[in-house]
Design a protein around this nucleic acid. Structure first.
Lengths: 202, 202
DNA sequence: CTACTGAGTGAGTGTACACTTACTTTCGTC
DNA sequence: GACGAAAGTAAGTGTACACTCACTCAGTAG
């Protein structure tokens, strides 16, 4: 209804799609619903994106950038590389805060891998997150907080696997998939395995 | 064409669906395709399953049972609990052998979690795999191959997270998501973290 | 030989939904 | 104050696809 300049409308459509897809899934959402939720009519969507899929890919790319930005903010105030890594382990974008909803979109995307374009967008997404993690491991190793038995590269992949698996089970609402009866959390386990048992401050 | 007794036709439909879904995904496959691939007409599908979704859930349940059975066969010849665990770490059902295709179905299912019935089936699936892993960790701890710092429960969840994340990235065909430039595989890392560095025989 | 049961089929039906066409309204600028 | 560009709309269209109806035929039991 309210006229918006193109750039803003585009962003608003992505915001709306993000919420909608998080709730009902990509294939579970219709372009009609999206239009209604955004307060416009369907052709507007097609003015900004050439197809539903195109919009989806745009959303995926934006999400990747946002995640890294959030990580950076989250780590900025940590006193040293070890603490940064510790925080990172507790800051799975698939689970915490706003990222949570958005990341259902990424998981959604993972099953649309028949589609070349979506696959490519996803591969880029994963690669950029891995690169970020690898950088953190390098810092932590240089600071002596993490041993050098394993390369930063493989260590970062391990963290990716863990985070992804954890995030999936969280999305599936698997009861107690991360704590045991004694209240120990997988996060604690990972931290002890990575950083040893010395005292740390966050 | 060839007439089959109901039970056999049902199994054959599940076999066919498993291949089809692995290739084109659940929502990417049509009931018409399935019927054609199975060499029957559509109404036959509906004689055995009340809906496409119902068939999907049946497939999911069968897959869970098959996975555990395969694990058991795979571990049976290992000499001791440590070796069993070692084998398990290298035997991700999402990646190796026949399980591979089938598990695309499970990943597919993970995005249909709006649907109550599918969610429930998935939760059961995960729970049974976790239970199996937990049992193996218990054995390994009792045999002294794995330390007791962490409960078998949480250790098994950690292995689930790792396996799931690994399997997802494998499905996404992420290049080099499991080895570093030095040829070290995440599997090796996990083994060393879990079982230490002592010599083992498989 | 007949009659019943259950496996099978050809030809729809209804609907959901991505995407379009042809048209109207708003607004900055010259 | 007019005109062109950009933002918007109402009302389709085409098609894909889950699911069904009404019927046929094969094999076995009495």
């Amino acid at each position: 209804m309210t006229r918006l300049p193109a750039a803003q409308r585009r962003e608003q459509l992505l915001d709306t799609a993000s919420k909608l897809f998080a709730e009902k899934g990509y294939s579970g959402s219709t372009t009609a619903e999206l239009a209604r939720a955004a307060g416009v009519t369907e052709p507007i969507i097609y003015r900004h994106f050439s197809s539903k899929k195109d919009l989806f890919i745009a959303l995926l790319e934006r999400t990747g950038k946002q995640t890294i930005q959030r990580w950076e903010e989250h780590l900025a105030s940590a006193p040293d590389p070890a603490a940064r890594l510790g925080r990172l382990i507790g800051a799975n974008p698939m689970v915490i805060g706003e990222g949570r909803g958005v990341y259902r979109v990424v998981v959604q995307a993972m099953t649309e891998i028949d589609d070349e374009d979506i696959l490519l967008a996803l591969q880029n997404h994963i690669a950029s997150l891995h690169k970020f993690l690898e950088g953190e491991v390098v810092r932590a190793q240089e600071a002596g907080a993490v041993g050098k038995s394993f390369s930063p590269e493989i260590t970062a992949w391990l963290l990716m696997h863990l985070g992804l698996g954890y995030g999936m089970l969280a999305a599936l609402r698997i009861h107690g998939h991360a704590v045991d009866k004694g209240g120990v959390h997988v996060r604690d386990v990972v931290e002890r395995l990575m950083l040893g048992t010395r005292d740390r401050q966050y």
